[in-house]
Design a protein around this nucleic acid. Sequence first.
RNA 1: UCGGGGAUAGUUUAAUCGGCAAAACAUCUGACUCUGGAUCAGAAAUUCGGGGUUCGAAUCCCUGUCCCCGAGCCA
Length: 562
Amino acid sequence: MATTEAVAPTDFIRSIVEEDLRTGKFAGRVQTRFPPEPNGYLHIGHAKAISIDFGIAQDYGGQCNLRFDDTNPVKEEEEFVDAIQNDIRWLGYDWGDRLFYASDYFEQLYQWAVQLIKDGQAYVDSLSPDQVKEHRGAFGTPGVESPYRNRSVAENLDLFERMRAGEFPDGAHVLRAKIDMTSGNMNLRDPVMYRILHATHHRTGDAWCIYPMYDFAHGQSDSIERVTYSLCDVAYEEHRPLYDWFLDQLGIFHPQQLEFARLNLTHTILSKRYLARLVREGHVRGWDDPRMPTLAGLRRRGYTPEAIRDFMNRVGVAKSPTTVEIALLEHCLRQDLNLRAPRVMAVLDPLRVVIENYPVDQVEEVAAENNPEDPGMGSRRLPFSRVLYIERDDFREAPPKKWFRLSPGAEVRLKHAYFITCREVVKDESGEVVELRCTYDPESRGGSTPDGRRVKGTLHWVSAGHAAPAEVRMYDHLFTKPDPSDVPEGQDFTVNLNPNSLQVLTGCLVEPGLAGQAPGSRYQFLRQGYYCLDPDSTPEKLVFNQSVTLRDSWAKIEKANE
RNA sequence: UCGGGGAUAGUUUAAUCGGCAAAACAUCUGACUCUGGAUCAGAAAUUCGGGGUUCGAAUCCCUGUCCCCGAGCCA
């Protein structure tokens, strides 16, 4: 099978790694980590970080750890720990036995905090949250020092110990680093290192009632794990001076933080908060709704890990804030599935066809290749009979220009079967076409005739007596605008929600072999697109999700004719 | 207002030391086809502006503009 991952990634981070490898900066070691907070589901934006963190380790013979950044017990849940691991594995990455938690390091972090207090680099502040905020100052103006800033080391030690012992209520005190209240970088204006939180932690239970802040936990966790490259979002670029400061004050192993731009995609949103709102307000059916950009949603939609990895390689790694067209993601899926998905025939909007000159009770089997891109995928046999269904959209009573499909008097090929000619159009009282009376050419079996006559159109079909009923869920972009946040004054992104992002087709008919297949199975519905069997399927009714359409040049012609 | 980061076809990225600006996606043509699919061939399209250095600048210097991020006891 041809590989779909042909693009060799090259980027500024890899250049730095290669340079370090040359100069021996980290003794030839490449160690990265992926540090999710277990407070939500992973989405395709995270997949970019995963692909970079694991991909770079892989490329240079290093390792990537999985570390849950679980320093805030009030936001984090065990449920997400499992879901996140599942998603990363599904994407195709492996952290071996290196599954860690920032909470594994709580005791060490505490000892380091004590060390900084003893060194006069940290102090217990007893200002209220509002006062801390006031003292911090604004962008243009310097902050002012807390009156508690110059407490003695002994008093700080005593207070901090008692904070740990649970003597104070939430918010009564914090431990802050003593840096510079006048810094232009807000992160350096005596950042909070520890806060009091009488909350049960998903792993440490009630062992702690003080918890370290991200800035005091992340770099040291990296250091403990001997991470060489701590790769993160550009949002953390302004935190780097602080990341470096703690490591330097502590005098411990110093990983290098490097920042890259996070992924944005057109026609969707990638903010955990907004995604949660879509779920909460019922705009989608859940976190794994096939319209969601979550990995769970993409998986259910029929996306392959290969397509997503290929996409990440094509998107590249840089620092400028950018928005990738969702068309590229869709292209990657098509390209992958074109090579791997078995072709099947499915009629979404059935129109009855009776072959008048075909024997009433006869059923024969025609051979159908499973994938013209890969003969190794073999072939199957399909039942053909006198009564069939074709796609309603494949017939026009008054055909437009360049119409290759069926119309009164026209001859087309039924894929893998016979040529048929439309003789008569049957309508009901309201004038709707309900049936086509056709004849077939017995000589055309297999799709060609002895006289070598050509037909322009080839249609998919199913045999009425054999087809399996199905529901097909058709999807379109979640948002109508490329940038969902482009809204009129006073409104929010929900006004750009696409009312037609889900269209449920019932009464579809698919070829018989599809019954009983495993949920998650992916197919190409011939001439239509790629579809994936949904877990909602039952023995009575198959349910398919449309993953992505095929490129449709007729749609373009039709549009141009308008 | 201050600090940090960024700017190359419509989009995302390349361009080794200062040496012919390129690829993919998207768009448009055409060929081919038992999927109006796939494939193939082709077209159009790019260095944020203004100065400067240089034989030569996307790259170096000066200057301006625009965009993103930052004032959680969130990560």
